[in-house]
Design a protein around this nucleic acid. Structure first.
Length: 577
RNA sequence: GCCGGUUUAGCUCAGCUGGUAGAGCAUCUGAUUUGUAAUCAGAGGGUCGUUGGUUCAAGUCCGACAACCGGCACCA
């Protein structure tokens, strides 16, 4: 019979545990679930696993699968379980915290390996594919996901129902590596990093910075249409401000701070919000001023843990397309909907169809502020906003910020990792701390409700996701060099320059490739650098005043008159408002 | 920060069991004036991540540190 893939993966996890037990008898078992594309199992043993061990473990697994071992389920009492697992500290810890709660305890035995497990499993190892899995990596993982606990060794395995599916998956992973934002950044000459001088900080090259600016142009234009005002606040601010906002204490280890020679403490801004609060606080606000939208493309610096850095996806200096929306409680729900609609529209225009949205609720944290009633109100408002727009979202309980619940939008990178980009967050902290107010219809002072909102999130991360999702083939309006003119030989240099001039006059980023090389060579090079359009010009084109166009990734060529090509490009580089 | 791996020319990488570095591409020079994914020839280019140690001798062995990659933890 055929089993669901999750069941096969989970059963394979038991097989791997059995294999590891055979090879390293001192091993202690933590647990091993099925995951997307495979499974993992967490072990604790003196032996340090490395790639050199993979072959032996796989071989043992294959032998076990071939042995046609049964997966035997048995329901047992808690006392019996404690007897069976008395030498397995992680299982014991679990059992000691186990709250019966009506659930039956069960164990599964496969060959010499018995695991506490809810199941279900395949009936026998002959139901498992002996060539459908491959050990991928070994990595550290904290027991119970808590960094205060011991670090275990986790072995990740890619697993599928058949060898063909596995091979296909591995091939896709290999192709995904070619779309890595770091590789594209190099190939397309967009940016680089300086690990020695500024780990985690981007050095934008001309082309990369053109894309960066274009993204900001786009967001700015959309915001302008929605009634946003744009501000810019200082980068380095006095300690007292960060104490007031709460960031000095709570994020001490992530802040870049320092003293000047005259003894003043400063902090490089890790967020733009306090600056926004101060702008709001200027002058008296009336309910007629609300909702008030203050946007800021702020560069923020956070000293992220060294192990957290990852190309453009996780950096220490990033640009947020931040905005703060001040409104009344009554306006809140509508404002959340407006913000989400704006974000989703922007994502669609940028070509993203698959977006994950979640609602993150109150964290179980000592730092959490605000009464339960206020949290109830806030979570309710966000939930109602999502429901009123019929949005698909998942509930991420306990994932909210200490100051309020949030809705986050996630996009995926080339190898399937999910990254948070846009977000709408309700903040119950800052308006209070900065004593913000507006005068209501009743002539009394009221506290405004505040939303943090970022559409792309960080320009850096968004560029990373965008590059990987497009494999570097950016839409023409975002491309730093949508077209390059390649003359067939030096003789057509003047005409090439004329084409370039016309395009530039129309606002198109372009240049002529005048190198003393064959057309073949230029086309190869420009294609590898992901140039969307190559305009070849030679004798024919010069005489007819045309260009011969080659579009990236497409076979064949198109001949167009110079004028119509310029018109076409003028249209193509417009922001997709 | 933690676990594992990695770090050799501008880039991609080779260098077995220690005997003081190699390829392709790129760059420069010359020839070629090119019609849709690499024209030919020659030349220059590396304190082998940094730093200690072992050794007659270290890119190679051992230690520390840093960065990068994959996870874990974190992510205002």
């Amino acid at each position: 019979m055929s089993y669901p893939i999750e069941l096969i993966r989970h059963s394979l996890a038991h097989v791997m545990a059995a294999a590891v037990q055979k090879l390293y008898p001192d091993v202690k078992f933590a647990g091993g679930p099925a995951i997307e594309n495979g499974f993992y199992y967490d072990f604790d043993t003196e032996h340090r696993f490395s790639e050199d061990d993979f072959a032996a473990i796989e071989k043992e697994m294959k032998a076990l699968i071939k042995s046609d071992g049964r997966f035997d389920r048995r329901e047992i009492s808690l006392d019996e379980a404690k007897e069976i697992f008395k030498n397995q500290p992680y299982k014991m810890e679990w059992l000691n915290e186990y709250d019966a709660n009506g659930e039956v305890l069960s164990i599964y035995t496969f060959r010499d390996f018995t695991d506490l497990c809810r199941g279900p499993h395949v009936a026998s190892s002959k139901d498992l594919p002996k060539d459908g899995f491959k050990i991928k990596s070994v990595a550290g993982a904290y027991w119970k996901g808590d960094s205060k606990n011991k670090m275990l060794q986790r072995i990740y395995v890619d697993a599928f129902a058949t060898g063909e599916e596995l091979a296909e998956f591995l091939k896709m992973q290999e192709e995904a590596a070619a779309r890595d934002n770091r590789k594209l950044g190099k190939d397309m000459d967009l940016f680089h990093f300086e690990p020695e001088y500024a780990p985690g900080c981007v050095f934008w090259h001309d082309k990369g910075f053109k894309v960066y600016r274009r993204l900001i142009d786009f967001i700015r234009a959309r915001q302008n249409r929605e009634g946003y005002l744009e501000i810019s606040t200082p980068t380095v601010l006095e300690r007292s401000l960060w104490e007031r906002s709460g960031h000095w204490a709570k994020y001490a280890e992530h802040n870049y701070s320092g003293k000047t020679l005259d003894g003043k403490d400063f902090c490089v801004k890790p967020m733009s919000c306090p600056g926004g609060m101060l702008v709001y606080a200027q002058g008296i606000k009336s309910y007629k001023d609300l909702p008030l939208y203050l946007a800021e493309f702020g560069k923020v610096n956070r000293y992220e843990a060294s192990g957290a850095l990852a190309g453009l996806m996780r950096v220490r200096e990033m640009t947020q397309d931040d905005a703060h929306i001040f409104c009344t409680e009554e306006q809140l729900q509508e404002e959340v909907v407006k913000a989400l609609r704006l974000m989703i529209d922007v994502y669609h225009k940028l070509g993203f169809k698959k977006i994950l949205m979640d609602l993150e609720t109150r964290p179980d944290s000592e730092f959490r502020i605000g009464s339960d009633e206020v949290w109830d109100f806030a979570e309710d408002a966000l939930r109602k906003s999502l429901e009123s727009m019929g949005a698909d979202y998942i509930l991420a309980e306990g994932e909210g910020a200490f100051y309020g619940p949030k809705i986050c939008l996630y996009l995926w990178d080339a190898i399937g990792r999910k990254w948070q980009c846009g977000t709408v967050q309700l903040d119950m902290n800052l308006p209070e701390r900065f004593d913000l107010s507006y005068i209501g219809e009743d002539g009394e002072k009221h506290r405004p409700v505040m939303l943090h909102r970022a559409i792309l999130g960080s320009i850096e991360r968004f560029m990373g996701v965008l590059l990987e999702s497009t494999a570097g083939v950016l839409p023409l309006w975002l491309s730093p060099e949508p077209v390059v003119v390649a003359p067939v030989s030096e003789k057509f240099k003047d005409y090439a320059n004329e084409v370039v001039e016309k395009l530039q006059k129309a606002g198109v980023y372009t240049r002529a490739d005048l190198r003393d090389e064959k057309v073949n060579y230029k086309i190869r090079e420009l294609s590898l650098a992901k140039t969307p359009i190559i305009a070849v010009v030679g004798e024919k084109e010069m005489n007819d005043r045309t260009v011969t166009l080659r579009y990236l990734g497409k076979e064949g060529q198109q001949v167009k008159s110079l004028d119509s090509f310029v018109d076409e490009m003028t249209e193509a580089i417009k922001l997709p408002l």
